[in-house]
Structures are given as C-alpha cells and as structure tokens.
Design a protein around this nucleic acid. Structure first.
Lengths: 196, 196
DNA sequence: GTGTGACGTAAGCAATTGTTGACTTGAGGC
DNA sequence: GCCTCAAGTCAACAATTGCTTACGTCACAC
C-alpha cells in the first residue's frame, strides 16, 4: 500500500493513516478496531494518530468525511435508471483494484456513537435519497415523502447488500460478479423509482 | 419490563438479562455495549452474566439463537408475494408494542467477531434466501444461483432498510408507517422474486 | 427452628484501551 | 559543521473492560 519508502513526510503519513483507518473501520467497525491496530497496520507509532487527528473519533470523522465527498460524486453522475443501477453495482462489487470503492459504503453503516458523525451520515443519506427520488423525473422540484421513502428503501437495499456481501459474506452474493448484481439492481431501481 | 417483583427466580432473571442484552446489542452493537450496561439495565449484578451465560459472547450467542429461531417462523409462514411483503414490513416497522420484532433483524447485522455466531448468521441468511427464491414457485426443488442471489438482495433490502430506519433514523423512513413500507416492499418482492 | 443449597452481591484482579508528555532523530537553512 | 524545528518514538498514565473469587441472604425441606 505504501509504494514510496516514506521517510519523513507528514502529509503522506497522514494519508497512510487515513487509508489504513478506513480499511479497519469499514471492516470491523469503530469500537472493535483499536488505535494500535491502525498504527501497526500503517507501520507508524500510535501517538501520531492523536497528533494528526486529535483523537480516535477525529480520525473516524476524517474517514467519514472523505467517504461522504466520494459518494457525493456518484449522486451527481447518475441519471437514467440503467446508469443508477450500474453505479450502485460498481459501488457494491467493483472493488477488485480499489477497496475504497465499497469501503465508503461500509463506513456509512459503522457508527462511532458521536452525534456529529451520525448527523453527517443522516444528512448525506437524506440528500442522496431526495436526488434519487427525482432522478428519473428532473422536472419535479420537490419530491413527496412517498417518493423519498421509496428511494431510501433503494438505498437501504444497496447498504444491506453490501453488508451481506462484504461483511457477513453469504454466498452466492459474496462471490457474484458486478454484472449479475447490476442485473438485479436494475429491476429494483425500476420498481422503486417513479417511471420517467 | 419486569412486571412481577422477581425475588429469587433464576429463570426469570436469566430471561430478563436476555431481553436487556438483546435490546442493548441490537441498539449499539456488541463491542460498544458493556456487560455493566446490561446488568444495570436489568437491575442485576454483573457477575450473573458470567454465571448464566459463561461470558459476554455466550450471552450474545444466546440472544442471536433466540432471534434466529424467531425469524425462522417468519420464513415458514410466508407464501404469496403479498404475504412476504407484509411479513417483512411488519418485521421492519411493526414494533409499536414489542421491540423484539425488529431487534431480531438488527441482531443479524451486529457481529461479535466470533466465528461461531457469524456462521449461525450466515447459515440462517442462506437458508432463508433459498426458501425465498422458491417461495413463489414451490414446484422448483433446487433454485439456481441467480434466483438465490436476487432473494439475497431482497434480504439485504430488508436489513438495510431496518438499519436506516431504526439505527441511523433518517426521515421520512424513520417515521413511516408499516403500510407505506409494505407498499414499497410489495413492488420490490415482485421485482426480485420469480413470477408465480 | 435450623441447616442447606441455590440466588445474588461486593470487591477486586489482570488486561486492554485512548491519550499524553518527554525524548530522539533526521532533513534543510545559515 | 551546526542549529533548529518538524517528524517520529517511547514509556507510562488513568480509565475502562470482562471476568473471578469470596462472601451475604433468602426460600424451602425436615
């Protein structure tokens, strides 16, 4: 993960900690992962976590912030039902090269107990669900609660499927390819979002 | 929660611990909840947890076992797509009187890190998804992977929706009624399960 | 009444946790 | 060459964790 030798580069070390932390938090949750796990994983002393991120919660918040900005780009791109399904399937299963793609989703279901990060999560999910509810009908300005609710169930399907696949690892979902998942998601999007 | 005064009844104390533990585990996860939280919530000394359940993990396993047997009854009942959707909606939202109904679902996404409980979870989800895949076509003996995969995505939708509603609490999903959720789930079931 | 055994409590142990302060090391400016 | 300051390490703190051991205490049989 650390291609360059990294001798004394604060920015690079900070980023290394961020990547390692996101990996651990996404995989095992906030309470289960210890700061020593993260530091050891990054090959760095524990004290640097508090130096760069003030606290374990600060590090988690930094991870979540990065995941949120990452996920927001998805919401901006998607337009047609097919695009939406493909984007979601890639988030869930397209992690062959870059684990960050689906770790961002897992971070959304890992809570640190802090109210601030919980609010970040809630705000992002609310914003994405509103955008999803109007994605197939851009002329609609204000989606009604029923449409937003259906979009949120769609989001829940994406998050739940990610957990089943990556965290609990139940086959055949855990070994399925991106295309098979996109196939099912396509039907799901058509069923839950208003027809264009 | 403890209607009777409960003086010195081992079985009742054990059950009280079980109920309190399920509540805490479902709400905050395994690592976050401490044995003292559970004992205090039950109004009982901490040592009783180790006496009755050997360890914190033993208590968690007992909770999960109870949830698994509870959820298996759902799988036996459901038959038509409408029934399936209604049963799922009740699991997600029908917790006005009995919190155990949706706490059972939350327990399924809370891991203790123990391989045995993880396997229980995986086995239950696998079994339910196979049953779901053939629910609308009972004549089919062995469902193919594609059908099981779609049923698992349906399960993921139920689990993810539960988290969004009960754990992250994003409106309007968190305040929606059982009927509205059943309405959306009905479309979802039709889209993911093979037509009869 | 009185013993007896199960039910429950209190106190504390050993390990792990996040965090902090003092210390060491190294790269670059003069 | 040395001085300086940021980058990184080390050791230890206080708090919390799960768990155990020794000790009360209530109900029931006799």
């Amino acid at each position: 993960m650390a291609a360059t030798p990294r001798r004394r580069d604060a920015a690079q070390t900070r980023q290394l900690l961020l990547d390692t932390a996101r990996h651990h938090f996404a995989r095992h949750g906030f309470a289960t992962t210890t700061v020593r796990d993260i530091a050891d994983g990054a090959g760095v002393n524990v004290a640097l976590i508090n130096r760069y991120f003030a606290s374990k919660e600060g590090l988690f918040e930094a991870c979540l912030t990065s995941a949120v900005t990452d996920l927001k780009q998805d919401a901006d791109r998607s337009s047609s039902p097919a695009d939406i399904a493909a984007t979601m399937a890639h988030r869930i299963a397209g992690s062959a090269d870059d684990p960050r793609v689906h770790e961002a989703l897992l971070l959304l279901v890992r809570s640190s107990g802090d109210e601030r990060t919980d609010e970040m999560r809630r705000s992002l999910l609310h914003s994405i669900s509103r955008r999803l509810a109007t994605a197939t009908n851009p002329s609609v300005r204000e989606p009604d609660d029923a449409a937003v609710l259906r979009a949120q169930i769609l989001l829940g399907a994406v998050l739940g499927t990610t957990m089943l696949r990556a965290s609990i690892a139940v086959p055949p979902l855990s070994t399925a390819g991106e295309e098979q998942i996109a196939d099912a998601l396509s039907d799901l999007v058509k069923a839950l979002l208003p027809a264009p």
